[in-house]
């Protein structure tokens, strides 16, 4: 599954920035993941324990900040959380809506010592 590739990237990014900051140890990694980014927190945690072994990040806590998905109606400007099988605007029923939140997929910061 691609959580493995994702975990590897998170580790690479964190180690690179920790080195730049002259850190001895990474204690926390703060991730921001939107609802539409298909990632399972538990699997990332699982691979993390495998991959981070032997690096300065091996005891780092992974913090997942989840961003709820949001769509915005281009007709009446209402922002709403879409239902599973219906993307139309709950208010004016327009089908012209855009995704405005939920794509986030980034390492926001790391906590280092």
């Amino acid at each position: 599954m691609h959580e493995l590739a994702v975990t590897q990237s998170i580790l690479d990014i964190s180690l690179r920035h920790a080195q730049k900051a002259g850190a001895k140890k990474i204690t926390g990694i703060n991730l921001v993941i939107g609802e539409f980014a298909s990632i399972v927190d538990d699997s990332v945690q699982f691979y993390w324990e495998l991959y981070a072994q032997g690096t300065i990040a091996q005891n780092a806590q992974l913090h997942f900040e989840r961003i709820a998905g949001e769509m915005t109606c281009t007709n009446c400007k209402l922002s709403f959380h879409p239902k599973d099988t219906d993307f139309s605007c709950p208010d004016c029923k327009s089908e012209f809506v855009q995704i405005t939140k939920g794509d986030e997929f980034r390492v926001d910061s790391i906590d280092v010592e």
Binding site: A5, V6, S9, I10, D12, I13, S14, H17, A18, A21, A23, T27, G28, L31, F105, R106, V107, D108, S109, I110, D111, V112, E113
Partner: peptide
């Protein structure tokens, strides 16, 4: 002492 290092980097940056 713990300090926070801001990163804001897309996770799949290397692939991109």
């Amino acid at each position: 002492m713990t300090i926070r290092v801001p990163i804001v980097e897309n996770i799949l940056n290397a692939n991109d």
